[in-house]
């Protein structure tokens, strides 16, 4: 029964990924990719990895999907031709290039052959692999008491391999920098002015958005707190915060824009700065990121709180900077 379910899920994963890469319509490709992300979340649940399942659903499928769908309108829109007419083939797919020339055929064939060979070699290698010499789960279990938290994944993420996480937060912040640098070359985006008639029709959804946003805050707080002893943590909580910010933006209650003011910039840098400050402060009596055992739990919670705020702002910022920039 389990095997049948696994095989079905894997078939669906391969089908959705393959179709997302081959279907001619870009919209359909993006939707199939979101389906693929949700199926991945299921796969993670099957692999006893609920933390990844949560993150995949919220970030991998949810936020990536939102970013892709939002970009679609700008990337799929017909390319204006010199004559000013819309080329018919570009309306539907926009990929409409002519039939490829001979060398392209040859190179494409070569790439397919190489990819198939790679897949087969990988499969063979995986099946032939003996058991590993080292068992890290045992090491993790032995060190859990000293980690300051009760959930193994959080212990690895913020204590045993906390240094990876420090750099990863820098990567996320860096992506926002890059997006701002690329999108922000122009005047900052303005909040759209809503005419009176439209404002009236927005009344109810705005009310609901005002109710939902604090609820999202509550959920984020719960996820953050829960992360210490069960699946959850700063990244999942930050994703929920980001979703609330996007909702408020859609309701016109939060302006999008390409040039953040300094309070916002401080918020975006806050998580990284807290992490860096803790890393530097504990070096006074040990090495980088070596928490004193009595303080480990509290310090991890401090770092995670800072991270939740910054990750929420950054993920929302990625969305708002991208969607705000093109809407002059």
């Amino acid at each position: 029964m389990n095997l049948a379910f696994d095989l079905l899920l894997i078939a669906a994963l391969l089908w959705s990924a393959g179709r997302a890469l081959t279907t001619p319509d870009l919209f359909r490709a993006v939707v199939l990719f979101i389906v693929f992300g949700l199926l991945m979340a299921l796969a993670w649940a099957r692999l006893d990895a609920p933390d990844i399942a949560l993150a995949e659903a919220a970030i991998g499928a949810g936020l990536t999907g939102a970013l892709l769908l939002d970009a679609l309108g700008h990337l799929r829109g017909p390319v204006r031709r010199k004559s000013g007419l819309i080329a018919p083939s570009t309306v539907m797919s926009s990929e409409g290039a002519g039939p490829p020339a001979f060398p392209t055929y040859f190179l494409n064939g070569l790439a397919i052959v190489l990819a198939v060979a790679l897949g087969l070699a990988l499969a063979g290698a995986l099946l032939l692999l003996p058991e590993p010499a080292i068992s890290l789960p045992r090491e993790v279990a032995a060190a859990m008491d000293a980690s300051g938290v009760a959930h193994p994944v959080t212990a690895v993420l913020l204590n045993f391999r906390g240094y990876d996480t420090l750099l990863e937060v820098a990567v996320l912040w860096l992506a926002l920098l890059g997006v701002l640098a690329v999108a922000g070359g122009r005047a900052p985006g303005r909040a759209p002015v809503t005419p009176r008639s439209a404002r009236a029709s927005l009344k109810v959804p705005r009310l609901l958005a005002r109710v939902l946003a604090p609820l999202a805050l509550l959920v984020a707080g719960y996820l953050l707190w829960a992360g210490a002893h069960q699946p959850g943590g700063a990244f999942q909580a930050g994703a929920v915060l980001a979703a609330a910010a996007v909702l408020l933006n859609l309701a016109g209650l939060l302006p999008g824009g390409a040039t953040p003011r300094w309070v916002l910039r401080a918020g975006l840098g806050f998580g990284l700065l807290v992490f860096l400050a803790v890393a530097a402060a504990v070096m006074g009596q040990g090495v980088l990121l070596q928490y004193p055992p009595a303080w480990a739990g509290a310090l991890i919670m401090l770092i995670e709180t800072g991270l939740t705020l910054s990750i929420g702002l950054t993920l929302a910022g990625l969305f708002l900077a991208l969607s705000g920039a093109s809407r002059q």
């Binding site: 080292i134 890290l136 090491e139 993790v140 060190a143 204590n159 045993f160 391999r161 906390g162 240094y163 990876d164 040990g286 090495v287 980088l288 990121l289 070596q290 928490y291």
Partner: peptide
């Protein structure tokens, strides 16, 4: 060699 977090390989970095 510098063990980040004081754990040391293979558990730490």
């Amino acid at each position: 060699v510098y063990a980040v977090g004081g754990w040391g390989a293979p558990l730490g970095i």
